[in-house]
Simulated scan of single mutants.
Amino acid sequence: MAGFRNGRGRDNRPPQQQPQQAPYGYNAAPPPYPQQQWPPQAPQGAPQRAPQGYGEPEYFGDPYPQQHPGTANNPGHTQAFSIHDDPYGDAAAYQAGAAPVVPTGPRLPWKALLSGIVLRPAPTFLQMRDHPVWGPALVVTFLYGLLAIFGFDKARDEAINATLSTAIPYVLMTGAGFVVAGLILGAVTHTLARQLGGDGSWQPTVGLSMLIMSITDAPRLIFAVFLGGENGLVQVLGWATWLAAGALFTLMVSRSHDLPWPKALGASAIQLIALLSLIKLGTL
C-alpha cells in the first residue's frame, strides 16, 4: 500500500514533460519508423478486397465466398429452400414395407369373407389385412377337420366300423388336431413373412391361412368322402387344389405383408409342403 501512496508505478514526471495525447479520433504524431501506406496494397495477382474503414476489424478471407454444391450442408454453410421445397425428398413417396396410413376397409361379414376368398381374393385379402378373422377361421377349420378323416380310406373305415362312443371322440380329436395344425402352420408363414421384410399382423395372417387351407381342399374332400382317396379324379383334384392353395397363399401374404410375390411364395413354402405331405400325399 505504501507504494501506491508514494505514487510508485506511476509516471512521476512533471506535467510539462508528459507527452500530449491526441484527441480521440485524430491521428497521433508520426511514429519514428517509416510510415506505411494504408490500407496495405495487395501483391500483384492476389485477389482484391474492398477497402475497410479505419478502426474497423479486418476479416480475412473472401467476404462473399462462392457456395459450392458439395459444401451446402457443411458446418458454417447454409442452404436456402423455398417454401414448397422438401429437403428430405417427397414425404408422400411410397416405401416398401410401410404400414398403410389409413385402414384398408371395414371388416367383412363371414359370408362375404368366405365368398371373397374364392371369387375376389385380392381385394378381400387387402381389405382384411388389419382385421382378425378368428371366428370364421376356427369354425371352418374345425368342420373341415371333422370331415377330413373320411377323406383317408383307412381312417374312414376305422371310423365307420367303430362304435359310436369310440367314433365321436376320434372325429372330434381329428377336428381339433386340424385346428392346432392350422395355427402352427399359419404362425410359421407369418414368421417367415416378417423375416423377409413383411409388416402384416399375425392374427389376420394366421386366420386367413387357416381359411385358405380349409377352403381350397374342400372340392377334393367332397369327392374323397364318396369315391375314396385312391380315385383318379380325387388325385387330380388334390394336385389342382394344392396349386390353387399356393396361389392364394402367395396372394394373401403379398397383400397382408406388402411383399412382392417371390418373397410371399417363399414365406408360404413350408405351409404348402406340409399340406402336400400331410393331406394331399396321404390320399395319393
Rank of each mutant, 00 (worst) to 15 (best):
S165W: 14
F223Y: 11
P204I: 03
F150E: 03
G175N: 01
L192R: 10
V206C: 01
I222V: 14
G200Q: 03
L143G: 01
Q203P: 07
L227P: 01
I149L: 14
G197K: 02
T189E: 13
A193Y: 04
L221P: 00
I160V: 15
V180R: 06
V179F: 05
F150W: 04
G198K: 00
R156Y: 02
N161D: 15
T166I: 12
V171C: 14
A167F: 06
L185G: 07
G175H: 01
D153K: 02
L147V: 11
V188E: 11
S209H: 10
M173F: 11
L147A: 15
A137P: 03
Y144Q: 05
A176P: 00
F152P: 01
S209Q: 07
V188L: 15
G135E: 11
I215T: 05
A148K: 04
I212H: 02
D157Q: 15
E158S: 14
T163Q: 10
F178I: 11
L208I: 12
V139E: 07
A218G: 01
L192T: 09
F142H: 05
H131F: 06
Q195I: 02
M173S: 13
D217H: 13
A137V: 07
T174V: 10
S209Y: 03
P132C: 09
A224L: 02
Y170S: 15
W134G: 10
K154A: 13
M210C: 05
A193T: 01
I222C: 09
L126V: 09
V140A: 05
I168K: 04
D153P: 00
V139Q: 07
L208E: 06
L172I: 13
I222K: 02
G151H: 03
T174M: 13
